[in-house]
Design a protein around this nucleic acid. Sequence first.
DNA 1: ACCATCTTGTATATCGTTGTAAACAAGGGC
DNA 2: GCCCTTGTTTACAACGATATACAAGATGGT
Lengths: 343, 343
Amino acid sequence: MSVSLRDVAQRAGVSVKTVSNVVNDFPHVTPAMRERVRRAIDELGYRPNLTARHLRKGRTGLIALAVPELGNAYFAELAAAVIDAAARHEYTVLLDHTQGRREQEVQVCQGFSARVMDGLILSPLELEPEDLAARTDSAPLVLLGERRYDLPYDHIAIDNVAAARVAVRHLLGLGRRRIAFLGARLNRTHQPAHLRLLGWQTELAAWGVPAEEALVATTHGWDHEDGSVAMAHLLDSGQVPDAVFAYNDLIAIGAMRVLFERGLRVPEDIAVVGFDDITESRYGAVTLTTVAPDKQAIARLAVESVVGRLKSAQNAESPRPTRELQPGFTLVERESTLGRRAR
Amino acid sequence: MSVSLRDVAQRAGVSVKTVSNVVNDFPHVTPAMRERVRRAIDELGYRPNLTARHLRKGRTGLIALAVPELGNAYFAELAAAVIDAAARHEYTVLLDHTQGRREQEVQVCQGFSARVMDGLILSPLELEPEDLAARTDSAPLVLLGERRYDLPYDHIAIDNVAAARVAVRHLLGLGRRRIAFLGARLNRTHQPAHLRLLGWQTELAAWGVPAEEALVATTHGWDHEDGSVAMAHLLDSGQVPDAVFAYNDLIAIGAMRVLFERGLRVPEDIAVVGFDDITESRYGAVTLTTVAPDKQAIARLAVESVVGRLKSAQNAESPRPTRELQPGFTLVERESTLGRRAR
DNA sequence: ACCATCTTGTATATCGTTGTAAACAAGGGC
DNA sequence: GCCCTTGTTTACAACGATATACAAGATGGT
């Protein structure tokens, strides 16, 4: 059925270890012997069994990446970047989506598929600090995204407050003064880390513009549909803003759809800014101005963090202290704020 | 460092196997003993090592899913469905993207991360029949998508010809006669399995409408950008169609973007139909009419095929013959063909 | 020639788990 | 009291790979 080192060794008339040495390119094997073993390997079509290798070596070469929802283009694009970054370090990525459910997130950081993974990259939504503090699994864990936990784990996120401020500043600079925020959490007290909303407030305050509570729309999730519902709700309530800053691109695009349906012009009547710079935002009837986090950098830093810790653990070095890493971002200005001149 | 069965056994004063029996809920363990072992497990925080378990059992509980590009919403949404379907059978999914590169696809069907995966689900683009015929890995493999190989592997795809015909019929029924096809392969001779193009031809023929070669636009890939380029090219060439049938939604949306830029109205001047029904197609300024494959069914069938074959292999049954499975599809009619009345 | 040194290959234990078979204890029928 | 049955627990050998320690062979200096 499956060919093992034993079979190859028998065929080549050498010991198992010698074959292992050839496979792993170890020194102290004469060229002649190496060749003989090589031939036996080819003839039998031997392929090493990683399960066994990893049991022995104590590592599996697998990193888990858990994001809330793969259907969200931001996470899909990020996942693609992580897979590529991991491949450069010879790690394979096991991808899961938590659907933003706390229990699933807990399961992930508790080792998920129990001890098969060398490391974990998690983008949490509902995970609470106490879940994280109760973590017993010893594999390196990196956290991505807006939430901060102040626990000894590497955390990678752009400066969300600064990014939101840049977006709002852009709108203020265009003369807009009634800027709605779309996509706040339902229970905002419970979730203090709502940095994009904070950035919105801060920048408005800096310009002396009142931050009207009525212009903050909450959503259940962060999909197109949530954006549409929130936007419709806002308009129906009689609060007509002259600009919208959305939590992400999906919400922004969902909101724009409602504006189109109601005959409101973007950006003439209402300017729109999103967050994430997913591909979709470049191809609508009105292209979307958005904050573009450096996804490549996020992926690279996340993988390097995990791989680095694995390496230092392997060499029995003391691990370096945990860090807050802030990749860059840019504001991409498009038609939803600049109109036709953006082309 | 990590707690093993041995440690638990020592602590509870029993043999390793007894602990194993408790962990696996085997019968013939007295309640008192079970309780004693349970306590030891809790005290030490024991978690089974899946690597070792799987080495022993000969299976890993992992299925690989390889799609061309995760950034393509269709594949991201499909991947999400596969992950969920696999979870229902207690399998975990390892996701990879091949970027449509032949060598990567070959690597995947050759076991990819070598023998760690129990089964494989592959959505090939460039993979050639000879690659597949040369496959030595014995893990069950299922193929998804348009290409057919006529080799003994389960293949899951909707009836692409029929689906394309339904889409084209819809346009013909609306009175359109110059229907362009966007997204043909560059070398169409080399890739005979271009079923959607075939469906376009067939349906036109059935209506006695000439299938003009000039209305077939080739693309390099299948992204928004490819759709934009192809559409611009078509218009610049002086061939102005009254409808467009695109290989997928991304191309359709990219094409619509160009139509917007040039002041052409959708659907009044040019009607557009896509393929895949990704979420994005429901939220543009003009929502997209599209063929909606039953992604849930595709995912379910793929997982069931792999799991079924693993089960029969485990019970040493002879595997059932390979099958062609055709999940259903529907045509979702929206504004890009019906205009405002679609709402 | 002889011993020390270096190179190359082998035998064996080990990683953590489960399957097999055998040991052991308790209970029941004769 | 003995044997058999039933039920519970254990010892030991795998799964396929790598690391350690050691043996055998080659080389070189005296």
